[in-house]
Design a protein around this nucleic acid. Structure first.
Length: 576
RNA sequence: GGUCCCGUAGCUCAGCUGGAUAGAGCAACAGCCUUCUAAGCUGUGGGUCACGCGUUCGAAUCGCGUCGGGAUCACCA
């Protein structure tokens, strides 16, 4: 039971005993005591005054006294205005910390038996990944880990937009302008080469608008299965996939299931017929099919063109149906930018109207744009922050900072290289993930991502510090060393309390689909440890019981930091 | 124009299921390395929580309105 629930339960008993009134436990407001006050948890007594008919202080004192007298775990109280601050006993905190220390999977919540698919990334194959994709990828990856920690079975999925007019544009430019250039012949990553083709096409079309007709013909040929166009398409997509794989690998991201739009773009047509049969859709005289959403405050939505071909939402309807059926999903999270809020609103509505009871188990993790100081990134203006470049520059930055510190002189090159990558990536990932997903965020390329303060490297550094102490320890230690022979200091209690909040944070972050909650928690924990580290000697402690207690405490801290950061896809080094 | 999201320190962000004097980091300034890693710690300055009205014992948080920024409302994806 969490401390909050425990206090709610006991306080309800106190109120019953003192005032003879029954109050629902859940209605009692309990929170962690603000640090400028004495105590661990605070019960807000304002709402109780109607029942107690006493002044706030008197009410707090009465309940506090009852709790101290009747609940062994509660050792002290003080009442300030309408706030009853309660302190747990040292014994309580020791038992709490010991239980955490003994729990090898602390932070992993019990199984829900639910199967969840998380779709993210879903790139187009006509240009390389940029910073916007990085936010998408990191959120998707992290939310997948979070949902797993919340006890769900998770399938990471992506849907590659590998067909359509956009890729034909790159194909057209390559044939006309690139003289058979390949990634091998140019030494370019395949996705970048194809991206160059796309840019070249845009320029070409500006000067010769008529080329668009040729591109459309290419798309028609593709749909007919024209051998030449299909071969060109397969070759260039192959280049792009190879390039993406490199970027994904550098980001530490993988998928369990990859769908390709050339396989899915015809899905959903039978749903259109079903909708017509059900009377959910209507057919206009020109043959186009619509869903009337005006009663839901939206417009009429096209679901099939007059010529019988699909639109975007048609295949999304079909893909969702196929996934829920094939994988027996309980829910489906789509990580897609907030410019598609309307699309997902419509998607859910239509699926509901088609009678799928899982329609309300579709969640759109709608995240905000990443903007530059001068505004949105625009590929036409060359202001796009390329994913590979950014990853590389973070690596360089990590290398530079590490070399300046000179702490790794004895480490071999291969190890150093891996470490620079870990730190650079940690800085980048944390920078992106610590921001509330739904908010637009700003990235300033001129100020490189910081390594000091509320950053990934700060937490990595904290972890390395703990590991350094543990390496030097000469006595064995373990959960059994958290025992009543040691009286924890105020700071140690504070650390224990913070640790105890972790599973609740995991649950909260999972429910909100917000890894930022975990990032901010990890920072708080690291910051708290650094203060502890600063004024509490550990290895120099002469009392062996206290020494062992502290070693075990910081070991649990290191484990919890690793666990939390792992949920963000960030690894922590033992040295840096 | 309709709908949705956002507006907190110079900058980047927490806090938002209503609670105590609104918090961090960066930047600025002042301290702390014969002591377990200074990518750290401590301190100073910095706020009309966009604005107004309302609900409440209590509002950055909830409601309504105004202003400002963004997204979206395609037989594009």
């Amino acid at each position: 039971m969490t401390a909050e629930l425990f206090i709610q339960q006991k306080a309800a008993q106190a109120i019953k005993a003192i005032y003879g009134a029954d109050v629902p436990e859940a209605s009692l407001q309990v929170s962690v005591t603000r640090k400028e006050f004495e105590g661990d948890y605070t019960l807000v007594t304002f709402p109780l005054l109607k029942i107690t008919h006493q002044a706030p202080d008197a009410t707090g004192n009465a309940i506090g006294q009852w709790l101290v007298d009747n609940v062994p775990e509660i050792a002290a109280f003080n009442s300030v205005k309408g706030f009853l601050n309660l302190s747990f006993s040292a014994l309580y905190w020791n038992e709490c910390l010991q239980a955490i220390a003994e729990d090898a999977s602390f932070g992993q919540l019990p199984s829900t038996g639910r199967k969840v698919m998380v779709e993210f990334s879903s790139p187009n194959t006509n240009k390389p990944l940029h910073l916007g994709h990085i936010r998408n990828n990191l959120l998707g990856d992290s939310v997948s880990r979070l949902l797993k920690a919340c006890g769900n079975e998770v399938i990471k999925a992506t849907l590659v937009n590998d067909r359509g007019v956009h890729i034909c544009k790159s194909m057209y430019a390559w044939e006309k302008l690139f003289n058979g250039a390949t990634p091998e012949s140019t030494g370019k990553k395949g996705d970048h080469l194809v991206g160059d083709c796309y840019v070249a096409y845009a320029k070409l079309e500006k000067e010769h608008p008529e080329v668009l007709e040729d591109v459309h013909k290419m798309l028609v040929d593709w749909e007919k299965g024209d051998q030449h166009v299909r071969e060109l398409w397969a070759m260039m997509n192959g280049w792009v996939y190879a390039g993406f794989d490199e970027t994904y690998k550098a980001l530490g991201i993988s998928f369990d299931k990859v769908d390709y739009e050339h396989d899915t773009y015809l899905l959903g047509k039978e749903l259109v017929q079903k909708g017509l049969d059900m009377g959910v859709f209507v057919k206009d005289p020109d043959g186009s099919v619509w869903c009337d959403l005006t009663a839901d405050g939206l417009d009429r939505k096209l679901v099939l063109r007059g010529d019988g071909t699909s639109v975007y939402i048609t295949q999304d309807l079909g893909t969702a149906e196929r996934r829920f059926a094939n994988y027996k999903l309980d829910s489906h999270v789509y990580v897609v930018g907030n410019e598609q809020d309307y699309h997902f609103q419509v998607l859910k509505l239509i699926l509901g109207k088609l009678g799928f009871d899982w329609a309300d188990q579709i969640y759109h993790l709608s995240y905000g744009m990443v903007e530059l100081p001068e505004g949105k990134m625009k590929s036409r203006e060359g202001t796009v922050v390329d994913a590979d470049d950014l990853i590389q520059s973070m690596y360089e930055e990590a290398k530079k900072t590490s070399e300046e510190s000179g702490k790794l002189a004895d480490m071999d090159e291969k190890e150093k290289d891996a470490l620079y990558h870990m730190i650079g990536l940690g800085a980048l990932k944390y920078f992106i993930i610590k921001v509330d997903p739904k908010k637009t965020m700003l990235f300033n390329p001129k100020e490189s991502i910081d390594f000091n303060g509320n950053t990934g490297p700060f937490i990595q550094y904290t972890h390395a510090r703990i590991c350094s102490i543990l390496r030097k320890a000469t006595v064995p230690y373990g959960p059994e060393d958290i025992n009543a022979s040691v009286e924890p200091s105020a700071k140690e209690i504070r650390l224990t309390q913070l640790l105890s909040l972790y599973p609740g944070k995991v649950a909260e972050a999972g429910a909100a689909l917000s890894p930022a909650i975990i990032a901010n928690y990890a920072y708080e924990l690291a910051k708290e440890f650094n203060q502890y580290y600063h004024d509490t000697p550990i290895l120099k402690e002469e009392n062996e019981a206290v020494l062992k207690y502290r070693l075990e405490l910081i070991d649990v801290l290191a484990r919890t930091l690793r666990s939390a950061m792992k949920l963000l896809g960030i690894d922590l080094p033992e040295r840096m």
